[in-house]
Design a protein around this nucleic acid. Structure first.
Lengths: 237, 237
DNA sequence: CGAGTCGTTGATTCTTTTCAAAGCCCGTGG
DNA sequence: CCACGGGCTTTGAAAAGAATCAACGACTCG
């Protein structure tokens, strides 16, 4: 799923829409019938599209990770979400992209022509419903992130991110205690609305508290998941 | 529309989904065919539903204003949006409400049975499409608010809110320079992720700068709209 | 008229940002 | 193979913005 269900545990939801990683085969590919044969590869840091671009295609991440973001005129950037394998990018009713999408590592994408998507959605209510579910999932994620950014402090935000990634690993069949961070500190900062320095300091703080372990900057071992979850939930520091 | 397109000017969008106020008659009611005959009245501060409630109905605001919010376990509250006449409340794929909805003034709502909505969406792609558009509009609004809360300072946030309300007035046929604020300072604070005091101080600041005029606490006259828009856009204080 | 809620203002504190510098990792090239 | 360079990360010290604590004022409703 788009990375963030930062708040509640939506573990119980039906894996609707774009929420199932495509590299697990325990669930049907939601939009398999929508995929064109066409694939596209984006290098690390290469853009898939920019805000304002004409929306001719939407994409589904096959492998890799894509970050979705908006910028203010003076350059401030807010990352809206990270799209992992299986996630749909570019959904929405407008004919222009309303955010930019940049691969943060080597990424392979399925390309879905927007026109064809629209046709199929109109003719086949099943498809329409799947898109609706995917969109509603993304809305949920956006609002969860809003709560996190709006109401939680730095420690709680980072804890929430780690918990979300851990949960995604779990769902994905990976080790929930071993979190890979393909994104840089700057990406994390712009996602959680903090600075690079605060993110770094907060990692250090969590490490010193014994909650995590940083093998490398991009590889987190969770040592006390409950503590992280308590932090993320916001019950005292 | 749900109040917030805090960032860009989506003035050019097609008034999709729930975005047209129902008390203007210059546009067709998007979901007119969905409305049950049933109406419901909510008193000021009365809840329409709570997060976690079974979703039997969705609602469309007829008159009044409803605030949608989530809370953390310790009571911190993030308002996700304010729903104005015409807006649909409770859309989404899950069968439980994922946020709480509280009327902030005397409000009349159309009640739409969730089951029937689902049926109609499946049988009639037109309806499905309208719901899709409404949802995508809400996603846009949520992400815009995220950018605002995540990247802007107090002054910019409040300016963005006033600009958004002004734009809505414009679309609605009301005076875009005369902004009614049905919500309290606490509501504004929880919407913009500030404290009551900061909101109040920021109003004062905007007033002293000559950008606005506060006839009453709940009635803003905009005196320099360009200045507000510049602030909201984030081009220097 | 009084109680209570809501809004404003002031003083202080605190978290995070900003500014600055050093360390680390990794790939490149000598 | 190791030195060098550059980007990313970490850490420290100072500054700033918003939160907190506190009190007062205004408006509303019994």
């Amino acid at each position: 799923m788009l990375v963030m269900n930062l708040v509640a545990d939506y573990a119980g939801d039906q894996g609707a829409g774009s929420s199932v990683f495509s590299d697990t085969d325990r669930s049907p590919q939601p939009v398999s019938r929508l995929r064109g044969q066409v694939s596209r590869v984006a290098q690390a840091r290469e853009h898939v599209f920019f805000e304002g671009d004409k929306k001719d295609q939407v994409y589904q991440v096959e492998t890799g990770v894509v970050c979705l973001y908006k910028t203010l005129s003076d350059g401030r950037r807010q990352i809206l979400d990270f799209a992992y394998p299986g996630d749909l990018i570019g959904l929405g009713a407008l004919d222009e992209h309303v955010y930019s999408a940049q691969a943060i590592m080597l990424t392979r994408l399925h390309v879905i022509p927007a026109g064809r998507l629209h046709e199929m959605a109109c003719s086949d209510p099943q498809i329409g419903m799947q898109l609706y579910r995917a969109l509603s999932q993304q809305l949920l994620a956006a609002r969860d992130l809003l709560v996190t950014v709006g109401q939680r402090n730095a420690t709680e935000r980072l804890a929430a991110l780690l918990c979300a990634l851990s949960r995604n690993n779990e769902r994905n069949g990976s080790n929930p205690l071993r979190i890979a961070l393909p994104m840089t500190r700057a990406d994390i900062a712009d996602f959680l609305s903090l600075t690079i320095e605060t993110v770094s300091r907060t990692f250090t703080k969590l490490r010193q508290a014994g909650y995590i372990d940083l093998a490398q900057a991009s590889l987190v071992n969770i040592r006390d998941r409950q503590a992280l979850e308590r932090l993320a939930a916001g019950s005292a520091e």
